[in-house]
Simulated scan of single mutants.
Amino acid sequence: MFYLIGLGLGDPTDITVKGLEIVKRCARVYLEMYTSILGCPQEELEAFYGRPLLLADRDLVEQGADEILAGAGEEDVALLVVGDPFGATTHTDFILRAKEKKVPYKVIHNASIMNAIGCCGLQLYKFGETVSIPYWDETWKPDSFYDKIRLNRLNNMHTLCLLDIKVKEPTPESLTRRRKEYQPPRFMTVAEAAQQIMTIVDKKDALERNTILNEMSLCVGLARVGHDSQRIVVNTLRKMTQTDLGAPLHSLVIPAKEIHPLETEFLQQYTTIKLEDYNH
């Protein structure tokens, strides 16, 4: 049997009882640390589970599905995923590969940022399409994600922005060599994300006189959701470009233009701005 097991968002104890029982009996257990990160070292997981884990890095996750699935028809093999297994489309491919190989599979769900984002007080059923904000560089500055934020705002829906993670990213120079060299890991902050959105607002929404989004629009910055060190800050988009929420992972929420009174009351604890009188 092949198992996809969600680990949740915090520490080793966030795994479900069902997931832990499966981990303990599997012949091989892989830990996927490419699409997200857990707030503890691999060694802590191994100590809690009482067994070694095989690290599934970017190359293995993207190109080594056959290696991970090998033998799963005769013995139990698990892939551990931070959050929920279906929080990233990458893991859907593992299920399709398993079905193609006629390998039986089972998914063990857990909490992910997609539902835990409700911790900020914004109601989950009022969120529109989730967007991913990529790192920009000198020659590549994609802004198509902003069109989705804009559409959500026009439809009076909140937007969850997932911020870029760069883990085991090849250096541009090494792409032309046989031996790959990798950039240091990077994790986008809410300040970086807000700055990129501000740049797009200044360019695009000037034509609409900034009625969709502007520097005074509210946004919610979150860091390390599900951890003991979780932080939430509500600020204007402009001030969020200067907000330091510390260590990763960060997420950014652009609220709807109209916020329910209960949402306003809950958000108020995270800001000095008087939200009930604020034009979102």
Rank of each mutant, 00 (worst) to 15 (best):
G118F: 08
L122W: 13
T272G: 06
L55A: 11
L80K: 06
Q123T: 10
P184I: 05
R238S: 13
E173T: 13
A256D: 10
A72D: 07
P172Q: 03
L175F: 01
V81S: 07
D59I: 09
L151V: 09
R179I: 15
G6P: 00
D66I: 02
D93T: 14
E263V: 12
E43C: 02
T236L: 05
L160R: 00
K99L: 09
L80I: 06
Y278A: 12
I254F: 08
E44W: 01
P52R: 07
N155E: 15
P134I: 02
R51H: 02
V107Y: 12
I232K: 04
I22A: 04
V81T: 07
S217F: 05
G10S: 15
P170C: 14
K18T: 11
P85Y: 03
F127A: 04
E43Y: 00
T139R: 12
Y3T: 01
I117M: 08
N279E: 09
R231V: 11
C40E: 00
E129V: 04
C120D: 11
F145C: 07
Q183E: 15
P255L: 08
I95K: 12
I133G: 14
I232W: 08
A191I: 00
L20M: 13
S251H: 15
E43P: 02
H158Q: 08
C219M: 07
L79D: 12
A256W: 05
L4E: 07
Y30D: 08
P185R: 13
L162D: 10
C119I: 14
E43M: 02
F145D: 12
E32H: 03
T176F: 15
Y125E: 11
D164I: 03
Q242E: 14
E192M: 05
Q268W: 06
A191T: 01
I68H: 05
L175R: 11
I95L: 15
S217I: 10
T243P: 01
R177Y: 11
C219Q: 06
G64V: 13
R150D: 14
S132L: 05
D137K: 07
T199D: 15
I15A: 11
V107M: 09
P261E: 12
A256R: 03
I259K: 00
K274Y: 04
M33I: 08
Q196D: 02
Q230Y: 05
D205K: 05
N214G: 15
D277L: 10
T241C: 14
M33L: 08
E62A: 04
T171G: 03
N156D: 15
C26M: 05
E258L: 13
F145E: 11
T92L: 09
L38C: 13
N214W: 00
V23K: 07
P261I: 12
V23P: 02
V233R: 15
P104H: 10
T159Y: 07
L31M: 14
E67K: 13
V23Y: 04
G64Y: 11
F48M: 10
A70W: 01
P248T: 11
E192P: 02
L162S: 08
A88G: 10
P142V: 01
G8L: 06
T199G: 05
A70C: 07
Q183T: 05
P248R: 12
L4V: 04
G246A: 06
S174W: 07
N115E: 13
F2R: 09
R178H: 03
T176C: 09
R186L: 09
D11L: 04
K168I: 05
T130I: 12
Y278T: 13
K274I: 06
N110F: 07
